[in-house]
């Protein structure tokens, strides 16, 4: 596996997966601490199996069956849509229009809801298992999507993307297991901003390649495209800051 493959496939897969794992871990932690660990761990394991199945079947089928140019076009389109969704939300968050993602607040809310439902310690905790399964599956679907998209260029890229996602999962779970609290120290909003720009960059780059565009220096153009997205996002934050009067931002949430 060469350095370029690792940089292109493993790095974005690692960063994007880390964000998703942090969000899933918050819910699993809330379930484990309020209702006991057995059911949420089984739910998370079942969910991980489901996701492995999705990547194993869909990912391999896409890479082996779809012709390369068509594949680049499809993956580019999906990455661009996915990346713009993240980027838009991140800009609105940084401009104060949408509330910042707060892991501590989500954790507290989840704990309160789970406590309210009560738990019978002598029976299997289906609620705990299903909540954990759904949380890991929901966040994990995005991880699976990213792995398939970044791994679409071939077996080496797929392995690099899978390794990046697994490494992110191991680190996040290990830190959460030690701390036993939501990972609020992870700069999630900033990471989402960067990942949104990165996904959009690869969307433009691969769709361009798919339709026969020549990028100067091939992958060497990626930092330039990424820089353009970051610059445009920074400009957008400044623009929005100028548009909304100071102190009125919280009331304008959820546009």
């Amino acid at each position: 596996m060469d350095l370029a493959t690792i940089a292109i496939a493993a790095t974005p897969a690692f960063l994007a997966s880390a964000v998703e794992f942090v969000e899933a871990t918050t819910i699993v932690l809330a379930v484990g601490i309020t209702r006991g660990w057995r059911a949420p761990l089984v739910g998370s394991a079942l969910s991980a199996l489901t996701l492995a199945l999705i990547v194993g079947t869909l990912g391999v089928a896409i890479v082996t069956v779809v012709p390369e140019h068509l594949l680049l076009g499809i993956v580019g389109t999906l990455l661009l849509l996915f990346g713009l969704r993240w980027l838009r939300k991140a800009v609105l968050r940084f401009a104060g229009i949408v509330a910042l993602h707060d892991e501590e607040e989500i954790y507290r809310r989840e704990v309160a809801e789970l406590r309210a439902q009560g738990v019978a310690r002598d029976r299997w905790d289906w609620i705990g298992m299903i909540v954990a399964y759904k949380a890991v599956l929901l966040e994990g679907t995005e991880v699976a999507f990213i792995v398939i998209a970044f791994g679409a260029k071939g077996v080496g890229a797929m392995n690099a993307a899978i390794l990046g996602a697994i490494a992110a999962g191991i680190i996040v779970i290990a830190v959460a297991a030690v701390l036993r609290s939501p990972l609020t120290a992870v700069p999630e909003n900033l990471l989402k901003f960067g990942v949104g720009a990165m996904l959009s960059t690869f969307g433009v780059f691969w769709f361009g390649e798919g339709v026969g565009a020549e990028w100067p220096g091939d992958a060497a153009s990626i930092p330039l495209i990424l820089g353009s997205f970051l610059l445009a996002s920074w400009l957008a934050v400044r623009l929005l800051n100028g548009l909304l009067p100071e102190g009125a931002r919280v009331e304008a949430r959820n546009v």
Binding site: V91, I97, S200, V204, W215, S228, A232, S233, L243
Partner: peptide, 23 residues
Amino acid sequence: ENSGWVLLGLVLALVLANLYRAG
């Protein structure tokens, strides 16, 4: 050969216009 740059320009303009509208 240069269609990729056209796409980049269109998408950046779209992002700015969309966020301006949201603001």
